[in-house]
Amino acid sequence: MDNEVYIIEEILSRFPADPEAVIPILQDLQASLRYIPEEAVILIAERLNIPAAKVYSIATFYNAFSLKPKGKHLIHVCLGTACHVKGANDLLEKFKRELEIEEGETSSDGEFTLEAVRCIGCCSLAPVIRVDEETFGTLKQERIPSILEKYRAKSEGQEC
């Protein structure tokens, strides 16, 4: 927790005390902490001299921000038009079954957060998903378990 406050303060110190900085601050926070903690909303409001209600309003308006911690790996299933006509929904359903979660939720082991996104701009390779920074194109349901396995192994590797 203290560590979180430290990170929040550090991120705040990078920006001018300017109301237009609120979105970039939230973006950096989301990237560092994988969510926007309640203290952050209050500290941002104090620092930028705007009501906390405004910060909260922005944090809940944009899809990029999450009020709950996200999993170690972020799965983005693209539901753009090209992916849709090539069966992206079946992929999303497969992920839901494999991870036993609904869209927008985090798996019980904290490994994965499953999100549907509207076009990541790789339409030529539809259907596409993105896990963290890696994009997988022309994906079939069959490959999904091995992709999940790969990322689980990655997390384990880091912990050792």
């Binding site: 992916c83 076009c119 339409c123």
Partner: peptide, 11 residues
């Protein structure tokens, strides 16, 4: 902010 699904020329 190329948001139209199915368009990626700007990217």
């Amino acid at each position: 902010d190329e948001g139209d699904p199915g368009a990626y020329m700007d990217r």
